[in-house]
Amino acid sequence: MTQRVYEKLIDEEGKRVDGREWNELRPIKIEVGVLNNADGSAYIEQGKNKILAAVYGPREAHPRHLTLPDRALLRCRYHMAPFSVEERKSPAPSRREIELSKVIREALEPAIFLEHYPRTAIDLFIEILQADGGTRCAGITVASLALADAGIPMRDLVVACAAGKVGDRIVLDLNDVEDKEGEADVPIAFMPNLNAVTLLQMDGTLTPEEFEQAVNLAIEGCRQIYKMQKDALKARYLAIKKEVEEQ
């Protein structure tokens, strides 16, 4: 893949570099239960993003001194494959990956009934196989499905989506070029049933009014993806049901 240089991020007809409208998500494909060894797993494609998430646990925590007496320890590793980006990325965790692992963990923690599993660990691994902008959001969307697939009780699914400012417009779900060339990016993770924002970050610059628009748009995007999440989860359960009935 070679990067094209775009003269304008929004053309005369208001279309974006990939032909989308300002409030349009990229095509999303989600599959739940894709890995055998993991207790729960899921896969998402969002634009050219290809991301796998796997959950192990609740299981015994190692090293044991990390265990918490009143709840489970959630550990999260967001990691990019060396071949996932234009220029090979060193497989060692970068400062960016360490920060994202932390904010993703804190985005998912409010959803999980961690207090049901004291002295255990829940390990969550997110592998970015191909990155196309918005990997932390797609990573959260797919990770909460992996948690659900592992049978871990949750208050709601966590769904994430970004909005941002590109070529003077507030747009939904920025791709790689828009993220890099645009003016601002606001990733948000959300639990729709609880009206709970569990991750919020921003880089770039926005006025307070633009920020409010971006938050509303990102939450609207979250609601759309939330439906796809639930459909993917249902498809998984129907497949299991069918398997059981055939036996």
Binding site: E109, N195, L199, T207, F211, V215, I219
Partner: peptide, 24 residues
Amino acid sequence: GRICAIQKGGSGFFTKEQVLEAMR
């Protein structure tokens, strides 16, 4: 007075209304 960085931290959450109030 433009926003130039945001970071939420901690294992709880904010409602959308709280986010906007906090911003103001």
